[in-house]
Write a protein that binds this DNA or RNA. Structure first.
Length: 115
DNA sequence: CCCAATGTAGTCT
DNA sequence: AGACTACATTGGG
């Protein structure tokens, strides 16, 4: 059956939603973080320290803070950011084993990063 | 294991 | 304005 599968990214493209990211992310730092995140493709992951290298900053923890203020998870793919030591890291403001971090794992599964 | 460094936002005084 | 605090982290002692 062909028509049963939906490519979410193609569907999103069709919607042609325009986001005013500068409105939400005012500072230089946060815009750098967001721009770096938007370059990630489905199935790709990065780490807080890797983003730090790209934007020339050591504020790894602050990178998490930017993600926390992400109004639209999935469009700004904060779930593709993992800890350098392989841990899952936090999601939507929570860092321990909560439904939020579990959702993060599920998203990575869907995108094929983990089984 | 403990701890300083990092950027932002929030809460005081 | 300034001081202080909490964070989805990291690398070093």
């Amino acid at each position: 059956m062909q028509g049963n599968n939906i490519n979410l990214f193609e569907e999103f493209k069709k919607l042609k939603i325009e986001l005013n990211l500068k409105d939400k992310f005012k500072t230089n730092f946060s815009q750098n973080v967001i721009n770096t995140l938007l370059k990630l493709k489905p199935g790709e992951t990065t780490t807080y320290s890797e983003i730090g290298n790209k934007i020339n900053s050591k504020a790894y923890r602050a990178i998490g803070n930017v993600c926390k203020s992400n109004p639209i998870p999935l469009i700004i793919p904060c779930h593709r950011v993992l800890r350098k030591n392989g841990e899952i890291g936090g999601f939507m403001g929570k860092s321990d084993k909560t439904w939020e971090t579990n959702l993060k794992k599920q998203l990575l599964k869907i995108e094929g990063y983990i089984q």
